[in-house]
Nucleic acid binder design. Sequence first.
DNA 1: GTCTATAAGTAGATAGAC
DNA 2: GTCTATCTACTTATAGAC
Lengths: 195, 195
Amino acid sequence: MARTAGSHSQTTGPRVHDAALRLFAQHGFAAVSMRQIAAEVGVQAGALYNYTPDKQSLLFDLMRGHMDALLGERAARGGRGSPLARLEEFTRFHIRFHLARPDAVFVSYMELRNLSPENFAAIEGLRRSYENELEGILRDGVAAGLFAMQDTKIATLAVIAMLTGVTTWYRPAGRLSVDEVETVYWDMVRKTVAA
Amino acid sequence: MARTAGSHSQTTGPRVHDAALRLFAQHGFAAVSMRQIAAEVGVQAGALYNYTPDKQSLLFDLMRGHMDALLGERAARGGRGSPLARLEEFTRFHIRFHLARPDAVFVSYMELRNLSPENFAAIEGLRRSYENELEGILRDGVAAGLFAMQDTKIATLAVIAMLTGVTTWYRPAGRLSVDEVETVYWDMVRKTVAA
DNA sequence: GTCTATAAGTAGATAGAC
DNA sequence: GTCTATCTACTTATAGAC
């Protein structure tokens, strides 16, 4: 099997997405020009329009791709077991998934303002359905007498905010492995919702 | 005491800051032009430069003003009492302070990327010293056997992330008062760090 | 599929009149 | 302190050659 292009084995399409994601995460969507993305890929600006109709669609595709990956992985795991076991699985998954793709997480969270209204509604719907899985786990736990909280919806958002916050400080070269970080957060989540 | 300018009693300087804060929060720093800010204030773009040397300084002034207000209020309260009482006071303060100025919170959090390196370092230092107060409370509580956690620094960041997350969903017209929201979050924070 | 060239508009910032 | 006018540079997006 011959290599077709050395280390540049990716086709231009995915390279445009990768470059845009990295640049949007670093400088912000509005601060990045199509020329900068093109330069990062190694083509001229006009060539980008073979892969996206416009800059807005490029942002939307990145965010939808991220949410699709998130929900796709959740669907593949299903939710069996006790609410406590499901909550631990969800917690560890959330940490691991988010730490594995910091740029996509950052962009999907910070650039919601720069989506057109229709695109914003689409991403919001996907995010909502992710939250709903956690809320279902919490409700089941409360019903079973395992968990206790004053407000299930607020607890859902509080737990997700706490967990997603890991992306602001975690660095792969740091003293803790992802597995250890998962355990530290699981300990806190468990106590937060404990009966 | 005569009114000097009817409902437009503010001088232009503060009005520039208010308009910039609102627009930066809504659309993002990079997406807002000096001309848009000027239009919001009701002057021409050139007039803005009587109040700021450039756009970057305008952003920095907004963020530094926010952090100064945050740290100023903390300094005015001091930290007496048991770690548990101090943690409750900190929690309720954080919620109340952040819900009272959503635009400043949003800008200070989302626009860090758009600060020059020196300005970024300055804001980071202020944010760090705010976190340090909470970390001190948690350490004291652990030393007193009141709290338990695997990692004080991570717990500090986790609690702040959980609390700051309130700004993503709270709306003044919602079903809960700020006081009730404080109580819901305090219940979760208390359990998160409980021994 | 990528290039060059360009259209049409906007950006931050400054100069000088009033 | 605010205005108008302007400089220089950059923006997204398109057209048409290769």
